[in-house]
Design a protein around this nucleic acid. Sequence first.
DNA 1: AGCACGCCGACT
DNA 2: GTCGGCGTGCTC
Length: 804
Amino acid sequence: MVQIAKVIVDVPTMQTNSAYSYLIPTPLENELKIGMRVVVPFGNGNRKVQGFVVAVEMQVAPIQQLKEIDSLMDLEPVLNQELIQLSKWLASSTFSFQITCLLTMLPNVMRAKYSKQLKIVDKNYQRQDLAKILPESAWSTFEPDQLSKEQQSELSKLREQNKIEIVYQVKNQAQARQIFQITSQIDAEEETEILNSLRKNATKLRELVHFLAEQKDPINQPVLEKKLSVTVGTIKIGEAKGWLKRKKVEQYRDPYKEKQVQTKPLHLNGEQQTALTSITTSIKNRLAQTFLLEGVTGSGKTEVYLQAIAYALAQGKTAIMLVPEIALTPQMVTRVKGRFGKQVAVLHSGLSDGEKFDEWRRIKRHEAQVVVGARSAIFAPIENVGVIIIDEEHETSYKQDDTPRYHARDVAKWRSKFYNCPLVLGSATPSLESRARSERHVYQLLKLPDRINGHPLPKVKIIDMREELQSGADQNFSTPLLTAINQRLQTKQQSILMLNRRGYSSFIMCRDCGFVLKCPNCDISLTLHMDSHSMKCHYCGHEEPIPQICPNCHSRKIRYYGTGTEKVQQELQTQFPNARILRMDVDTTRRKGAHERILRQFGNHQADILLGTQMIAKGLDFPDVTLVGVLNADTALELPDFRASERTFQLLTQVSGRAGRAEKLGEVVIQTFNPDHYAIQLAKTQNYENFFRKEMYIRHQGKYPPYYFTLQITAAHKEEKMAAAKMYEVLNELRPYLSGTAIVLGPTPKPIARIKDKYYYQIVIKYKNEPKLHAAVTKILQESQSDYRKGVQLAIDAQPQSFM
DNA sequence: AGCACGCCGACT
DNA sequence: GTCGGCGTGCTC
């Protein structure tokens, strides 16, 4: 009998998508534990790869000669049984590799860095000879695919002759930050004695001795350096003289250093209390129930979440709360930290990899009991979960758009079942899926119909831009909107203006021949960027100068069309020369912390108008904003997407909620070319209920979710016909497994058929109950591995957010 | 992903 | 006759 470690190796292909068996060398027998990362030899050349130990089994003398585990990468497991099981389920349900899932679940630093080194093994082989092929400086960071064909073949010959070797290295990126901690070795009695032994003018040393004599507790070196304004040199002298001891300790990088003001639970109104009781009862009785908390903006959902979390903590349990990335603002974090203090760990994309790792370790070591974060925080290594909350559950960002294509809501449900704890989905405008499930009592619906401050919802005006344009108004600003902005400027109140979609946008077109400048790699028009004075492609990043003459007919009448935030900002400035305008879009928020800075400036009244894209719609709370303008409500409506109406309704309802949250009555102005569209009309009155009914009817007619499940399969290839052919092949293979009630759309080219010089073809399957579908698709994915070599990329998206 | 094996064309 | 192209299979 021998112990065998089952290892998932870091080779993301379908053929290696199962655990491999390795022998555990005797020295590691007691150290190795399930859930640790290991380095294992893999493949013919025994190159070293990272792997995860997912099981340890006893086996009778192995049938085949197994290889041995090379080394351990961790001192303690990074995965527990729950997360190992979860990764397996995730891989299967999202049609992805288990290794990809594991790496997605863990902080980035757990991903090993690989490097290759060239080494001479034959003593008779001369270094100079090898240097003739490749300079010696390049041996340590050897990258075969960056070499010429000749170099490659020379080197592979040498290798066959056993003259040289390629050494593969796996580097662990996970580094805890280490600092020195200083412990005093002297007391007050010794102080005088030591001071007498020192020169009079050794001021720094004298200060240090004095300090150490008083300081009983250990102190961190950086703190000491700052406090006494001494340098490392001085401290080292102290160490040499035996006044102090230095010890390396791990330290967390704390991204939220500021002290939080402790907040108290607020008084709940009747509905809030009812909702809370339902949730806490479920926590107490350990029920894996899903609640849908539907509450209008300002109805106090967050307070219900916080008190539900408090209840879970009081029961000795933990909590996860997901918030959309863009809503994970300092305001939000402060609110949660204010209630639960140091028990809170925050995970979001603004943190550095090191900071994320530290927050992750705090959770893992049970130093944090509440996790707040964006999508991937649903994988937090927290145990004994008492409640999971997903705020703004309708947000599309909860679905990851590359592999593994998981929805945080589904992962949350899985974990809620695992821990027998409730899941709370909160929204003012729930997704149709969730709301439909509550109708069928799969979810329990909890409603908060009233705003807590009792303020009326803002007045919403819909402006028909077709009429406005006919009466000669500006392309972007209708007269009523300009009037409203002007009023706010006069009375020193603030306005928020939202432009739907980033630069939907300023493309350029020739007035003579109609030529539009397009990306050479993709199928879409280039966007004008005034800040860099160039044309950019939003899909592949291609950039070129702005043409002055039409490349097609050489006319000089080349003009800008459409609207980007930059252009609107300029226009706005022309209209209101004295207005202070802040712009917030992808371009101005790219840098770390820029997002927060802009919001802080606006919050501090350093600007009158905040102009931005969707990102300004979420979760901001500025009491002095009394006007919200939506410049182009319908760009999203025109997209070929069955969720277009839902998104438009949600977005408009959400921005409208930004106006007049405090004492001042808010006003909302929505400019649109489709004033009669139901999504816009119903957003005007914030009538979710009617919208839900109407949209459900349309989904029913069109056989869309939530009436049908969907699965999208996409093939991409440099040549259009290859992509198309693959999709027909897939469809033929799939057909026999589908029942008569399944509906297949396609194969069709994607709405944007070419991106990054690749063509995309897709099929969409709409179905109600297809027991064989999962297995059939898995098989197709396995077989597609051989096409992958030919450059055909197959992507499978279960329950896609859209069919684009 | 990366390595070996094997089958084809174009070379000393 | 062999070198090297890459298509294919396999990795505990």
